[in-house]
Every structure is written in structure tokens, then in C-alpha cells.
């Protein structure tokens, strides 16, 4: 109650604090669940664990409307550009939770097809350990994310590599003879040529090697 006896209430605060308060209590998640961690996400959202107690209950399956990306599951190298596109489509401010061993580090899948942690392609705010993590783990990560937002901790941006950097990283097709074209058996060809054209150009020893 104010001094003159009326019912007017005034909170004096910084706008930034108010924005922080609003952001940290309305973290709308976008689940990107590709394997068994997704089951734990569902469990966390359901009534037993009830993530809505912390303001993160409105699951948005459109990245445009979400604040927090929960990556739950194995991400293959073929899935990586899709995930990066979803991250790019989310509007600032946005946060990322890497849930489980696979999305944090590749997990047990140290193979030719699996991305070794989603921090290869995007910045991650919180990693949740476990295979899969228990729902309390995910809740703890959301609470930790609230702490990050509250304290305004510095976050590292991940920018897409330029074309030159990408070409430098691709060393596997450099040989003493020069560039190896994709062989006929891969079924792809450089440029606009069809398969038949590519097979004519490539000599036999390169094709079989």
C-alpha cells in the first residue's frame, strides 16, 4: 500500500531485471528427440515430474516459437545440417541443452556416421550427463539454465564456418595426383555430369582404389 492510502502498488526495478525474470520463467522448449532420451523428455514433461513448475511446459514444435532447444538423442552427421537449421531458425534469445551422452559427446557411438557431440555445430549452454539422464537431471539442467540467465553469464556464439574453412577441413580427397573424383560406385559426381559421364572420366585404378 502506498503512502497516500490508495491501493496503488509500485515496484521499482531495472527493466533488464524484469526481462531476465520473464525470460527465465518462460523457457518454452523445443524437443529434438531422436532416441531413448526423448522418452525421458516426455516423462519430464508429464505430470509425475511436471516441468511446468519451472515455466517450461509449453512445448513448441516450431523453432520460431521456442526459446530452448533440448537435443535428446544421437545426432548423425547426416542429421547435423538439419539440427543446425533448426537452431538458426530459433529467434534470439535462445538456449541449448545437450541431453544425454550421445548429444553431448557421441556416447558409445564412436563411429563413422555419428556426430561427436552437438557442440561441433552449435553452442551448448548445459550438458546433462546420463544414458539416458533421469528426469531430475533434465529438471536440474533447466534450473541451471535459469541460473545462467539470472546471472547473465557469458555465452559463446558458434558461427558457421566459411567456405574456405570447410574446404581446408576436407583433406581426405587430396592425394599426390591431385583431386580424386568420387568413384563410380558412390553414385555421385562433381558438377552437373551424370553418372555415365563421371565413369568415363575416372580412370580404372582410381575407381577401384
Amino acid at each position: 500500500m502506498s503512502k497516500d492510502g490508495s491501493n496503488t502498488m509500485i515496484f521499482s526495478t531495472l527493466l533488464s531485471e524484469a526481462v531476465k525474470w520473464g525470460r527465465k520463467n518462460s523457457l518454452w522448449p523445443m524437443p529434438f528427440a531422436t532416441s531413448c532420451c526423448g522418452i525421458e523428455v516426455m516423462s519430464t514433461l508429464s505430470s509425475t515430474y511436471d516441468l511446468s513448475r519451472f515455466g517450461a511446459e509449453v512445448v513448441r514444435f516450431s523453432p520460431r516459437q521456442a526459446d530452448m532447444l533440448i537435443v535428446a538423442g544421437t545426432i548423425t552427421t547426416k542429421m547435423a545440417p538439419v539440427l543446425r537449421t533448426i537452431y538458426d531458425q530459433m529467434l534470439e534469445p535462445k538456449w541449448v541443452i545437450a541431453m544425454g551422452a550421445c548429444s553431448s559427446s557421441g556416447g558409445i557411438f564412436d563411429t563413422y556416421s555419428v556426430l561427436q557431440g552437438i557442440d561441433y555445430i552449435m553452442p551448448v549452454d548445459v550438458y546433462v550427463s546420463g544414458c539416458p539422464p533421469i528426469p531430475e537431471g533434465l529438471i536440474y539442467s533447466v534450473l541451471y539454465l535459469q541460473k545462467i540467465i539470472d546471472e547473465g553469464l557469458e555465452r559463446t556464439p558458434a558461427l558457421k564456418p566459411t567456405y574456405e574453412e570447410a574446404m581446408k577441413a576436407m583433406t581426405y580427397h587430396k592425394t599426390p595426383e591431385g583431386l580424386i573424383l568420387p568413384s563410380i560406385k558412390t553414385g555421385i559426381s562433381l558438377g552437373n555430369g551424370t553418372n555415365e559421364e563421371a565413369s568415363k572420366e575416372v580412370p580404372n585404378e582410381v575407381r577401384n582404389g
Partner: peptide, 30 residues
Amino acid sequence: MDERFIGHPQRKEYDIKQRMPFADNMKTNL
């Protein structure tokens, strides 16, 4: 596999940990 992938990973001579970096799955320079 990715359409840009070169090689056939189930052949015995293919190293199981040999990943192919492309522009969209290489480590971003943080």
C-alpha cells in the same frame, strides 16, 4: 550415408572411426 560421403563403410578396410568432415558437421570455431 550422406550423399557427399565417399567410400563404403561396411567394407572391412574402412576404418570405423573415419568420419568425413563437411561444412555443416565440422567443429565450429567458437
